[in-house]
Amino acid sequence: MSSADPKVKHGAGLSLLASELRILFGRRRTWAMLAAVALIPILLAVALRLTSAGVEPGQGPPFLDRVTQNGLFVSFTAMVVAIPLFLPLTVGVVAGDTLAGEASHGTLRYLLVAPAGRLRLLIVKFAGAIAFCIAATLTLVVAGTIIGALLFPVGPVTLLSGDVISVPESAVRALLVAAYVSLSLLGLSAIGLFISSLTSVPVGAMAATVVVSVVSQILGALPQLEWLHPWLFTDTWLGFSGLLSQPMDGTAFGANAVLQGGYAAVFFALAYSRFTTKDILS
Protein backbone atom coordinates (compact mmCIF):
# COMPACT_ATOMS: atom_id res chain seq x y z
CA MET A 1 0.00 0.00 0.00
CA SER A 2 2.97 2.31 0.40
CA SER A 3 3.94 2.15 -3.25
CA ALA A 4 5.39 5.50 -4.30
CA ASP A 5 4.36 5.42 -7.94
CA PRO A 6 0.59 5.78 -8.32
CA LYS A 7 0.72 4.88 -12.01
CA VAL A 8 2.10 1.46 -11.26
CA LYS A 9 -0.53 0.99 -8.55
CA HIS A 10 -3.30 1.96 -10.90
CA GLY A 11 -2.14 -0.38 -13.60
CA ALA A 12 -1.76 -3.26 -11.19
CA GLY A 13 -5.34 -2.74 -9.95
CA LEU A 14 -6.75 -2.70 -13.46
CA SER A 15 -4.90 -5.75 -14.59
CA LEU A 16 -5.97 -7.51 -11.39
CA LEU A 17 -9.58 -6.57 -12.17
CA ALA A 18 -9.22 -7.77 -15.75
CA SER A 19 -7.84 -11.09 -14.65
CA GLU A 20 -10.54 -11.42 -12.00
CA LEU A 21 -13.26 -10.83 -14.59
CA ARG A 22 -11.55 -13.21 -16.99
CA ILE A 23 -11.50 -15.92 -14.35
CA LEU A 24 -15.07 -15.22 -13.21
CA PHE A 25 -16.55 -15.25 -16.69
CA GLY A 26 -14.22 -18.03 -17.84
CA ARG A 27 -15.70 -20.39 -15.32
CA ARG A 28 -18.19 -22.95 -16.44
CA ARG A 29 -20.09 -22.44 -13.19
CA THR A 30 -20.71 -18.77 -13.98
CA TRP A 31 -22.05 -19.60 -17.41
CA ALA A 32 -24.21 -22.37 -15.98
CA MET A 33 -25.75 -19.89 -13.53
CA LEU A 34 -26.35 -17.32 -16.25
CA ALA A 35 -27.93 -20.02 -18.40
CA ALA A 36 -30.17 -20.99 -15.51
CA VAL A 37 -31.13 -17.32 -15.08
CA ALA A 38 -31.97 -17.15 -18.79
CA LEU A 39 -34.11 -20.25 -18.41
CA ILE A 40 -36.55 -18.43 -16.12
CA PRO A 41 -38.11 -16.20 -18.80
CA ILE A 42 -37.81 -18.98 -21.38
CA LEU A 43 -39.70 -21.52 -19.25
CA LEU A 44 -42.25 -18.90 -18.33
CA ALA A 45 -42.91 -17.89 -21.92
CA VAL A 46 -43.00 -21.43 -23.29
CA ALA A 47 -45.38 -22.58 -20.55
CA LEU A 48 -47.71 -19.67 -21.30
CA ARG A 49 -47.52 -20.30 -25.05
CA LEU A 50 -48.37 -23.98 -24.70
CA THR A 51 -51.33 -23.60 -22.37
CA SER A 52 -54.40 -22.46 -24.19
CA ALA A 53 -56.16 -21.23 -21.04
CA GLY A 54 -55.74 -17.52 -20.60
CA VAL A 55 -54.44 -16.00 -17.40
CA GLU A 56 -56.90 -13.92 -15.42
CA PRO A 57 -55.68 -10.46 -14.39
CA GLY A 58 -54.30 -10.51 -10.88
CA GLN A 59 -53.52 -14.21 -11.10
CA GLY A 60 -49.96 -15.43 -10.63
CA PRO A 61 -46.99 -13.05 -10.57
CA PRO A 62 -47.51 -9.42 -11.68
CA PHE A 63 -47.83 -8.77 -15.42
CA LEU A 64 -48.35 -12.50 -16.18
CA ASP A 65 -51.73 -11.82 -17.76
CA ARG A 66 -50.18 -9.22 -20.08
CA VAL A 67 -47.58 -11.55 -21.53
CA THR A 68 -49.87 -13.25 -24.04
CA GLN A 69 -50.83 -9.85 -25.47
CA ASN A 70 -47.37 -8.37 -25.43
CA GLY A 71 -44.16 -10.37 -25.33
CA LEU A 72 -42.22 -7.47 -23.84
CA PHE A 73 -43.80 -8.23 -20.48
CA VAL A 74 -41.92 -11.55 -20.25
CA SER A 75 -38.78 -9.90 -18.92
CA PHE A 76 -40.71 -7.89 -16.31
CA THR A 77 -42.51 -10.99 -15.06
CA ALA A 78 -39.28 -13.01 -15.05
CA MET A 79 -37.59 -10.26 -13.07
CA VAL A 80 -40.27 -10.31 -10.39
CA VAL A 81 -40.13 -14.10 -10.22
CA ALA A 82 -36.34 -14.22 -9.98
CA ILE A 83 -35.81 -11.46 -7.41
CA PRO A 84 -36.84 -13.20 -4.18
CA LEU A 85 -34.77 -16.38 -4.46
CA PHE A 86 -33.05 -17.07 -7.73
CA LEU A 87 -30.98 -13.93 -8.15
CA PRO A 88 -29.87 -13.90 -4.49
CA LEU A 89 -28.91 -17.56 -4.89
CA THR A 90 -26.59 -16.91 -7.82
CA VAL A 91 -25.21 -13.73 -6.26
CA GLY A 92 -24.65 -15.65 -3.01
CA VAL A 93 -22.61 -18.24 -4.89
CA VAL A 94 -20.42 -15.62 -6.58
CA ALA A 95 -20.00 -13.28 -3.60
CA GLY A 96 -19.53 -16.10 -1.12
CA ASP A 97 -16.81 -17.58 -3.28
CA THR A 98 -14.79 -14.36 -3.66
CA LEU A 99 -12.23 -14.78 -0.85
CA ALA A 100 -13.13 -18.16 0.61
CA GLY A 101 -12.80 -19.78 -2.81
CA GLU A 102 -9.24 -18.49 -3.27
CA ALA A 103 -8.43 -19.52 0.28
CA SER A 104 -9.71 -23.05 -0.26
CA HIS A 105 -7.75 -23.40 -3.49
CA GLY A 106 -4.66 -22.16 -1.74
CA THR A 107 -4.32 -19.34 -4.26
CA LEU A 108 -5.05 -16.43 -1.93
CA ARG A 109 -1.50 -16.23 -0.66
CA TYR A 110 -0.10 -16.08 -4.20
CA LEU A 111 -2.45 -13.23 -5.00
CA LEU A 112 -1.12 -11.37 -1.99
CA VAL A 113 2.50 -12.04 -2.89
CA ALA A 114 2.04 -9.79 -5.89
CA PRO A 115 2.41 -6.15 -4.80
CA ALA A 116 -1.31 -5.59 -5.08
CA GLY A 117 -2.24 -5.10 -1.45
CA ARG A 118 -5.18 -6.56 0.35
CA LEU A 119 -7.43 -3.53 -0.06
CA ARG A 120 -7.02 -3.58 -3.79
CA LEU A 121 -7.70 -7.30 -3.95
CA LEU A 122 -10.84 -6.74 -1.88
CA ILE A 123 -12.02 -3.96 -4.21
CA VAL A 124 -11.38 -6.13 -7.25
CA LYS A 125 -13.28 -9.06 -5.72
CA PHE A 126 -16.21 -6.79 -4.88
CA ALA A 127 -16.17 -5.33 -8.37
CA GLY A 128 -16.24 -8.84 -9.80
CA ALA A 129 -19.32 -9.71 -7.74
CA ILE A 130 -21.05 -6.49 -8.89
CA ALA A 131 -20.18 -7.31 -12.51
CA PHE A 132 -21.92 -10.64 -12.07
CA CYS A 133 -25.04 -8.96 -10.63
CA ILE A 134 -25.24 -6.73 -13.70
CA ALA A 135 -24.62 -9.66 -16.05
CA ALA A 136 -27.35 -11.73 -14.36
CA THR A 137 -30.05 -9.05 -14.55
CA LEU A 138 -29.11 -8.16 -18.14
CA THR A 139 -29.35 -11.84 -19.04
CA LEU A 140 -32.87 -11.87 -17.61
CA VAL A 141 -33.94 -8.84 -19.61
CA VAL A 142 -32.31 -9.88 -22.88
CA ALA A 143 -33.47 -13.51 -22.71
CA GLY A 144 -36.95 -12.38 -21.71
CA THR A 145 -37.19 -9.87 -24.54
CA ILE A 146 -35.94 -12.32 -27.17
CA ILE A 147 -38.20 -15.21 -26.15
CA GLY A 148 -41.13 -12.85 -25.69
CA ALA A 149 -40.66 -11.40 -29.15
CA LEU A 150 -40.36 -14.89 -30.65
CA LEU A 151 -43.48 -16.37 -29.06
CA PHE A 152 -45.85 -13.45 -28.61
CA PRO A 153 -46.86 -10.30 -30.44
CA VAL A 154 -44.85 -7.21 -29.59
CA GLY A 155 -46.32 -3.75 -29.41
CA PRO A 156 -46.63 -0.58 -27.38
CA VAL A 157 -46.51 -1.29 -23.66
CA THR A 158 -49.20 -0.29 -21.17
CA LEU A 159 -47.54 1.02 -18.03
CA LEU A 160 -48.85 0.56 -14.50
CA SER A 161 -50.48 3.98 -14.80
CA GLY A 162 -52.39 2.86 -17.87
CA ASP A 163 -50.43 5.11 -20.20
CA VAL A 164 -49.02 3.57 -23.34
CA ILE A 165 -45.36 3.92 -24.35
CA SER A 166 -43.59 2.94 -27.54
CA VAL A 167 -41.36 -0.12 -27.91
CA PRO A 168 -38.02 1.77 -27.80
CA GLU A 169 -39.19 3.65 -24.72
CA SER A 170 -40.15 0.38 -23.07
CA ALA A 171 -36.64 -0.94 -23.77
CA VAL A 172 -35.27 2.04 -21.85
CA ARG A 173 -37.61 1.27 -18.96
CA ALA A 174 -36.59 -2.40 -18.99
CA LEU A 175 -32.92 -1.40 -18.80
CA LEU A 176 -33.71 0.99 -15.94
CA VAL A 177 -35.46 -1.82 -14.09
CA ALA A 178 -32.42 -4.02 -14.71
CA ALA A 179 -30.21 -1.27 -13.30
CA TYR A 180 -32.49 -1.02 -10.28
CA VAL A 181 -32.35 -4.77 -9.67
CA SER A 182 -28.57 -4.85 -10.08
CA LEU A 183 -28.30 -2.03 -7.58
CA SER A 184 -30.60 -3.95 -5.23
CA LEU A 185 -28.09 -6.78 -5.14
CA LEU A 186 -25.21 -4.50 -4.07
CA GLY A 187 -25.93 -4.87 -0.36
CA LEU A 188 -26.13 -8.64 -0.60
CA SER A 189 -22.85 -8.74 -2.55
CA ALA A 190 -21.10 -6.79 0.22
CA ILE A 191 -22.56 -9.10 2.86
CA GLY A 192 -21.33 -12.09 0.83
CA LEU A 193 -17.87 -10.54 0.54
CA PHE A 194 -17.73 -10.07 4.31
CA ILE A 195 -18.93 -13.60 5.07
CA SER A 196 -16.43 -14.90 2.53
CA SER A 197 -13.61 -13.17 4.43
CA LEU A 198 -14.56 -15.06 7.59
CA THR A 199 -14.03 -18.56 6.32
CA SER A 200 -11.99 -20.67 3.95
CA VAL A 201 -14.92 -22.97 3.20
CA PRO A 202 -16.59 -21.42 0.11
CA VAL A 203 -19.74 -23.54 0.31
CA GLY A 204 -20.33 -22.30 3.85
CA ALA A 205 -19.97 -18.67 2.80
CA MET A 206 -22.32 -19.16 -0.19
CA ALA A 207 -24.97 -20.86 1.92
CA ALA A 208 -24.69 -18.27 4.69
CA THR A 209 -25.12 -15.42 2.18
CA VAL A 210 -28.24 -16.98 0.68
CA VAL A 211 -29.62 -17.66 4.16
CA VAL A 212 -29.08 -14.00 5.10
CA SER A 213 -31.15 -12.88 2.11
CA VAL A 214 -33.92 -15.36 2.89
CA VAL A 215 -34.01 -14.40 6.58
CA SER A 216 -34.14 -10.72 5.67
CA GLN A 217 -37.10 -11.36 3.37
CA ILE A 218 -38.92 -13.38 6.03
CA LEU A 219 -38.42 -10.56 8.54
CA GLY A 220 -39.71 -8.20 5.88
CA ALA A 221 -42.89 -10.22 5.55
CA LEU A 222 -43.78 -10.05 9.25
CA PRO A 223 -46.09 -7.11 9.93
CA GLN A 224 -45.15 -7.20 13.62
CA LEU A 225 -41.63 -6.04 12.69
CA GLU A 226 -42.76 -3.05 10.65
CA TRP A 227 -40.32 -0.71 12.43
CA LEU A 228 -37.46 -2.88 11.19
CA HIS A 229 -38.53 -3.05 7.54
CA PRO A 230 -36.91 0.16 6.25
CA TRP A 231 -33.58 -1.13 7.57
CA LEU A 232 -33.65 -4.43 5.71
CA PHE A 233 -31.60 -4.58 2.53
CA THR A 234 -34.36 -6.63 0.90
CA ASP A 235 -37.01 -4.01 1.65
CA THR A 236 -36.63 -2.16 -1.65
CA TRP A 237 -36.11 -5.21 -3.86
CA LEU A 238 -39.55 -5.12 -5.46
CA GLY A 239 -39.95 -1.35 -5.20
CA PHE A 240 -39.36 -0.51 -8.85
CA SER A 241 -42.99 0.20 -9.75
CA GLY A 242 -42.15 3.91 -9.94
CA LEU A 243 -40.03 3.11 -12.99
CA LEU A 244 -43.09 1.64 -14.69
CA SER A 245 -45.27 4.64 -13.91
CA GLN A 246 -46.06 7.73 -15.95
CA PRO A 247 -44.48 10.18 -15.28
CA MET A 248 -41.54 8.11 -14.19
CA ASP A 249 -40.90 8.32 -10.46
CA GLY A 250 -37.25 7.98 -9.57
CA THR A 251 -37.55 8.49 -5.82
CA ALA A 252 -37.55 4.74 -5.14
CA PHE A 253 -34.34 4.45 -7.16
CA GLY A 254 -32.69 7.01 -4.92
CA ALA A 255 -33.96 5.37 -1.75
CA ASN A 256 -32.69 2.03 -2.98
CA ALA A 257 -29.29 3.54 -3.74
CA VAL A 258 -29.04 5.00 -0.23
CA LEU A 259 -30.05 1.72 1.40
CA GLN A 260 -27.75 -0.47 -0.69
CA GLY A 261 -24.92 2.07 -0.44
CA GLY A 262 -25.23 2.01 3.34
CA TYR A 263 -25.09 -1.78 3.45
CA ALA A 264 -22.21 -1.87 0.99
CA ALA A 265 -20.21 0.68 3.02
CA VAL A 266 -20.76 -1.09 6.31
CA PHE A 267 -20.04 -4.60 5.11
CA PHE A 268 -17.15 -3.58 2.89
CA ALA A 269 -15.58 -1.86 5.90
CA LEU A 270 -16.14 -4.97 8.01
CA ALA A 271 -14.66 -7.16 5.27
CA TYR A 272 -11.68 -4.81 4.99
CA SER A 273 -10.96 -4.92 8.70
CA ARG A 274 -11.36 -8.65 8.84
CA PHE A 275 -9.35 -9.34 5.69
CA THR A 276 -6.44 -7.03 6.46
CA THR A 277 -5.99 -8.39 9.98
CA LYS A 278 -6.41 -12.01 8.97
CA ASP A 279 -3.48 -14.41 8.91
CA ILE A 280 -3.48 -15.83 5.42
CA LEU A 281 -2.41 -19.42 5.84
CA SER A 282 -3.59 -20.87 2.57
Binding site: L160, S161, F240, S241, S245
Partner: peptide
Amino acid sequence: QITDQLAERN
Protein backbone atom coordinates in the same frame (compact mmCIF):
# COMPACT_ATOMS: atom_id res chain seq x y z
CA GLN B 1 -52.07 7.78 -8.61
CA ILE B 2 -52.24 5.43 -5.66
CA THR B 3 -49.15 3.26 -5.71
CA ASP B 4 -48.92 -0.20 -4.24
CA GLN B 5 -46.16 -2.71 -4.65
CA LEU B 6 -45.93 -3.31 -8.40
CA ALA B 7 -49.46 -2.05 -8.91
CA GLU B 8 -51.14 1.29 -9.32
CA ARG B 9 -54.61 2.76 -9.32
CA ASN B 10 -55.11 5.87 -11.40
